[in-house]
Design a protein around this nucleic acid. Structure first.
Lengths: 183, 183
DNA sequence: CGAGAAAGCTATTGGCCACTCACTAACTTT
DNA sequence: AAAGTTAGTGAGTGGCCAATAGCTTTCTCG
């Protein structure tokens, strides 16, 4: 397998592991095991652990961006909104790790900034802005709509991270089309 | 100093340290140093590191709950909403670590649940429900209002964690009264 | 004062983990 | 077939960290 292909599978494995246990809670060995490769070899493919985390973070935001882009393609206004909400629900149901990874990314950026490392945050913010713009465009460049949509998304992320089961009253005010299934 | 008073200062120090570096990124020695006490002594005050994190998490949610309760006291409807939004802004400005701790708490619960430990999540969910009820009551038991308020709160947490400076376009749709100062 | 309890410390240990080094095996090119 | 490159490994290493054991100091109260 070529180095590039290996890097690709490392990124996928890293998303799974980092989503579950966070940056500091994930050992490079856990990632290597999931890839099916020796742990030292990761350091031939990436300069260090941070680089793996960054690659996983970026991939995750790009994927989410793509989900919104393709869901809203050709639609506008309320139709685009519901299409994106539905797509998000589907993402949550099929790929909850992406969402957990996003949370891990947030706290990792906060920690990095606190430690004086701004490069990581810079990169993540750029990707997040892309996401913001995608939503903004799809919702007819209405700032209020965009903000509310993303706000609901963040609430959903939070409630899911905290493990509130579908049916709990905290879900009662969330758009049906974006709620986790099962309620 | 009595053990109870020490525990109190440990909780405060723990909030600062865990907020900055997360559960796995924070050493018990960092907490002990901040308290001004030897590292092993922490384990006389708390059974283990997890218990310290749990205490810090609960404290943090209780404090936020109290902020909303006292801000909305005697008010209702839009007045209560703006009072709470303003109080949240003040909390953010004066005590950003509380907010970072909340994010850390979220991902810690997610990790604990994934690892099969549901006790921690149970406790945090109970405290979060208290918070939900406080907001719900203050906003006249309007589910939609409550959800939107909390959703905006979560968006603000996320954007602050990611380090978006005041003035960035991602803030443009956030209620003025809840935005970070400086814009 | 004296004794017990509570507060607090030093020293240590066993385990984990990011990262390095030096090597092998297979494939490619000349 | 010689020379070189690329994928990959096994065996460490130094450092950190949660938790324990056992000791000293300080307070309290009869």
């Amino acid at each position: 397998m070529s180095a590039e292909e290996r890097r690709e599978s490392v990124v996928r494995a890293a998303i799974t592991e980092f989503a579950r246990s966070g940056y500091n809670g994930t050992s490079t060995e856990a990632i290597a095991r999931r890839v099916g490769v020796s742990q030292p070899y990761l350091f031939r493919l990436f300069p260090n652990k941070e680089a793996i985390f960054l690659a996983a973070s970026r991939r995750c935001l790009e994927d989410t961006n793509r989900v919104f882009e393709s869901a809203s393609e050709g639609l506008e206004g309320d139709e685009a909104l519901h299409a994106m909400a539905g797509a998000y629900q589907k993402l949550i149901a099929e790929d909850p790790e992406k969402l957990h990874m996003q949370m891990q990314m947030c706290v990792a950026v906060a920690s990095a900034e606190a430690a004086g490392d701004h490069a990581f945050g810079e990169s993540v913010r750029a990707d997040w802005l892309d996401l913001w713009d995608t939503v903004h465009l799809a919702l007819g460049a209405d700032v209020k709509e965009t903000t509310t949509f993303l706000a609901y998304g963040m609430l959903i992320n939070t409630l899911l991270s905290l493990g509130f089961p579908p049916g709990n009253r905290v879900w009662s005010g969330v758009y049906d089309s974006a709620r986790p299934a099962g309620d």
